[in-house]
Computed example of a mutant assay.
Amino acid sequence: MEPYDARPLAGRVALVTGAGQGVGRGIAMRLAAAGAKVAVNDLSPARADAVAAEIRDHGGDALGLAFDVTDAAAAETAVNGLEIDILVNNAGVPPGGGRPNRFAEMPPEDWQLQIDLNLAALMRLTQLVIPGQAKRGWGRIIQISSGASARGLAIGVAAYGAAKAGGESLIRHLGVEYGPAGITANSLALGLMEGVGRAGDPGVDRLINSIPIGRLGRPDDVGEACVWLSSEAGGLANGQVIHLNGGTVFGR
């Protein structure tokens, strides 16, 4: 048996979008702890730089990389010159959290924003980084998706779910097209995460009780899953949608 590798991503460069807070921060921190140099993207330069500084304070290697993933020119300028081995497409919530609405009442600009942020940005960034990955013969594309892609919900997130589902479909095709080039592509469809409310609130407690493991997801949970998918140990996973949700059963 080979020795355990405590830094399985040493020498790799990762870009994590929307990493200035929440789940994205958790992903960036765990990838850095596994040895990757992390480009921390966020709309806010202050948030991006703060997380990058936090990583460096813990002995990791990181830089802040603030840009709007829906801005094609800004994205191209930001990644130009970076040899990105691992792309984690996490950015998915518009500034202010978006405006949930029944679809028929949803203004076109609202559903277009969901498509731009959750599908077009994934496509754009993938096109920017995957040629270099193919040339180097190794790469990882990870989409942070949602259970809303696979389940109808009456909470005004139809456009968000549709955009996430489109991203999952893209991931399946990427896995087939680029697997022979040493690149894997996978989605992590998240369930209920910390931040939906506080324990003790009856509504939040009902949500927690619906999860078989009895707790909400944490940013570190997602980060560890990204480390595994990015490592050689996770190299057999390709073209998959993994539901990271504590065992929540859809269709109930």
Rank of each mutant, 00 (worst) to 15 (best):
Y4N: 03
D205S: 08
P3W: 14
A163M: 03
A72Q: 09
L244K: 08
A10E: 05
G26N: 02
A237Y: 07
S231T: 03
V222L: 11
P219Q: 04
Y4A: 03
A32L: 04
A53N: 02
L63Q: 05
L31P: 01
A66H: 10
R47F: 01
A134M: 06
H58E: 01
I141P: 02
G234L: 02
G59K: 05
V13I: 09
I130A: 04
A6V: 15
A134F: 08
E76W: 03
D85C: 14
G18R: 14
G191Y: 04
G60E: 05
A158I: 13
L119I: 09
V249D: 10
L82G: 00
N238Y: 11
L174A: 11
N101F: 08
G217H: 10
D68M: 04
N41F: 14
I171R: 06
A36D: 12
A10R: 11
R25Y: 07
D5E: 15
S145R: 10
L229D: 13
Y160H: 05
G132N: 04
D49Y: 10
G235L: 11
L170D: 03
E232G: 05
G175P: 05
V196L: 07
E232K: 13
R99H: 14
V13K: 09
A225W: 09
T184E: 13
Q143S: 00
G139L: 09
P8T: 15
R30N: 12
G223N: 08
A73I: 02
I213Q: 03
R99Q: 15
L188G: 03
R151F: 13
R140C: 13
N80T: 14
Q114N: 02
G137F: 13
L15A: 05
G223W: 04
G214H: 11
G139P: 00
R102T: 15
I115D: 08
R198G: 05
A28M: 08
G156L: 02
V222I: 12
L65F: 09
G98I: 08
G24H: 00
V23Y: 04
E177W: 15
S210A: 06
Q240Y: 14
A19D: 00
I211Q: 05
V93R: 06
A154T: 15
I130V: 15
V196E: 02
R30H: 08
L128I: 12
A134K: 09
R25T: 03
A46V: 05
G81K: 14
E76D: 09
N90K: 11
D49A: 15
G156M: 03
Q112V: 03
A121Q: 11
M123I: 06
A34R: 06
S145F: 10
M106V: 09
A91Y: 06
P45C: 04
K164T: 02
P180A: 12
G197Y: 01
V13L: 14
A50I: 01
G156Q: 00
I55R: 00
G203E: 12
M29K: 12
A233L: 01
G167P: 06
G156P: 02
V38P: 11
I242A: 07
K135F: 12
M193Y: 07
W111I: 09
L31G: 07
E177R: 06
M1S: 15
P107R: 02
R252I: 11
A53G: 00
